[in-house]
Design a protein around this nucleic acid. Sequence first.
RNA 1: GCGGAUGUGGCGGAAUUGGCAGACGCGCUGGUCUUAGGAGCCAGUGGGCAACCGUCCGGGUUCAAGUCCCGGCAUCCGCACCA
Length: 799
Amino acid sequence: MQPYNPKHIEPKWQARWEESGVFHAKQDFSLPKFFALIEFPYPSAQGLHVGHPRSYTGMDIIARKRRLQGYNVMYPIGWDAFGLPAENYAMKHGVHPGEVTAQNIATFTKQLKALGFSFDWSREVDTTDPGYYRWTQWIFLQMFKAGLAYKKEMPVNWCTSCKCVLANEEVVQGECERCHSDVVQKNKSQWMLKITEYAQRLNDDLDLVDFIDRVKVQQRNWIGRSTGAQVKFATTAGDVLEVYTTRQDTLWGVTYMVLSPEHPLLDKWQDRLTNFDEILAYKADASKKSEFERTELNKDKTGVLLQGVRAINPVNGEEIPIFISDYVLISYGTGAIMAVPGHDARDWEFARAYDLPIVEVVAGGNVQEAPFLDCNTGALVNSGFITGMSVEEGKAAITSWLVEQELGSAKVNFKLRDWVFARQRYWGEPVPIVHCDKCGMVALPESELPLVLPHIEKYEQTEDGQSPLALQTEWLNTTCPTCHGPAVRESDTMPQWAGSSWYFLRYCDPQNETALASQEALDYWMPVDWYNGGMEHTTLHLLYSRFWHKFLYDVKAVPCPEPYQKRTSQGMILGEDGVKMSKSRGNVVNPDDIINQYGSDTMRLYEMFLGDFEKTAPWNSAAIKGCRRFLERIWSLQDNMQGTAMRAELEGEFHRTIRKVSQDTEQLKHNTAIAALMSLLNVITESGSITRDEMKLLLILTNPFAPHMTEELWEILALGGCVTDQTWPQHDEAKCVEATVEIAVQVNGKIKARLNIAADCTQEDALAVAKAEIAQDIAGKTIVKELYVPGRLVNIVVK
RNA sequence: GCGGAUGUGGCGGAAUUGGCAGACGCGCUGGUCUUAGGAGCCAGUGGGCAACCGUCCGGGUUCAAGUCCCGGCAUCCGCACCA
């Protein structure tokens, strides 16, 4: 026997797979298909992280199993290659981001290939390839034409010293990451996508798909659908102040109102407000804070009372004060709230701090002592004509009254906000729009796509925070597609999310030059059957791509309303010290080192064995050798192969393992599937040898986890063809049952004995045997109850 | 703050979803083989001498709770321009 040497075996099989194209999806659209998807990586300069293989191996196991089950499997890979880090690297080192990206892709490719994933490399996509982003731009144009892309003034992070727009990540505690100067919020006209138009469908259609619950819950909460009422408050200035509330039944408890510091009425009221200077100062302060800091509950409540304008509570005509405070955000609802301090924690604290009246409107607490928050049931009090009603009745009654009086209406609201779709950056897809003085914003004709990103050498933004493309006059100046007069191109680029919102479609037909993919290919492959990725992408990427897909469905570019049939999520791998791996902490594990030391089969096996796939788990270098040992033990079985057929005494164990591995892998419980294989190996080892048929089964079952070693052993033992040509085994339920089972015998729930009985033992017999076994424990006592759980236990309750 | 999750031996984790807590692996202890062992093989391994006690803490439901309910604590992820 040759010693087990992954350094020899693994490259050999990787080369064979590449030559034979065995993992390429077949063009035969009559076969049952399986589209397995993982989130394509951002090719960072750090190279592959041990987190990547966790997701990729998890799906690779499914993909390999599906092939053995006879499916035409597509398991593609590509690169989400636009983005900030490459551009920042370019600025620092003077290398073009395209060059950096190409290098990083080369590194990633090498690393991924060394892990033996069964990716279909012939379908590789790259979001920065003009042949790809041509279609990203095409989708944007369709959205623009459909009125879903528009421009709007939005606040951006502005570094006062660098004079540039910063990403949120580049702002650290209100300071610029690079120069530590103050960062302020500055309004800028930005491209937006109307995702809110799809909010209802994005919420409802979650019913159509098979996503793990926590993903659905997070999506629903992010979309944040609520039903309530829009209520008009008159003001002493004559203007109407509108608020959105889900608790219109508590209107009698409103004792003040709060506006966001950015509320447009403030400027309008400038002449009436005697403390306008104070208001301006507060606004300036608020502009320095992030949304986070502003909405934190346990910070001191700040605010400014508007002097000169008061609001009028529509239900009782009372004049109430108006404040501005930074905890009210302009981006949600109407940017103004009615405050009910008796029943809202934040309002209560604010009312305490400013000595405002607190009125109880739902019975059950003492609102002078503390806000009464558990107020969804309980009767309404101090509330005019709805006093005595339940909350639900009160809501309905007050809403009808508001409609009658033309003071408001029922309203569905979403937390979801439109998507800021512009970046003042270089390394992204150019927005295919032309600005013409005569014609306004004009879509580039589709025949002019792709609008290629020009090659430049300086990546800094302009003095007024425009993308560096604004300085590329030759590229920028063009003619209007409509009037043929002089015009300029849009200089903003798209966010990285653009390319990743539809990449799975391109995989279906990556070379197509006339459409994003052929109808035929889309009809066959879509939707994605199983998409695995990180929880960190649950709210943004997943929602954005569902939105794009729904739009493409509406314009009949794709055949199905949802892109992903199933979504699962792997947990993060933490450093050995139990915290997130990071360079600064020095706890980063490099996959190359592990492969080098143990081989990629061991690496794959270890990552699947280290814990529940869906849960966060710390890395543990010491435990890896257990997985290597498991592979070595299988490897050494080759010297003990005798006989052909499955031995009767091992049949049960084999069938139970087939069942366990088949079921567990479907739920991504790869850790327990591997544990079952280890147990099987222990049984085989104990028996002293293995037969040919048993070896075949063992190798097929282990193959998805450790594909190289199993192929090599299959070849050495001349078991016929390759493992990839075999069929995934099916268990026989009848052969899984064991003749006898051990049950526990309890008295009052405490275990007193264990005994072996026939698996099909009747309740009567089981109880009789059990009682005989624990006779001394129940002697002289009265039996109150006797319980028998077949195959598990007997419990005798005595007094 | 808001939303989602997690908490079980010395360690990573199992537990058929209310039914024998600790599968499987690491580590550790002892043995064996060996010129040698940080290799292999065999045995043991939650704590306690024991009755018993043990799944973050405090209550509760149940014949029976790691699992269900109520209240706390701690940790992790996301929060819209990182990807």
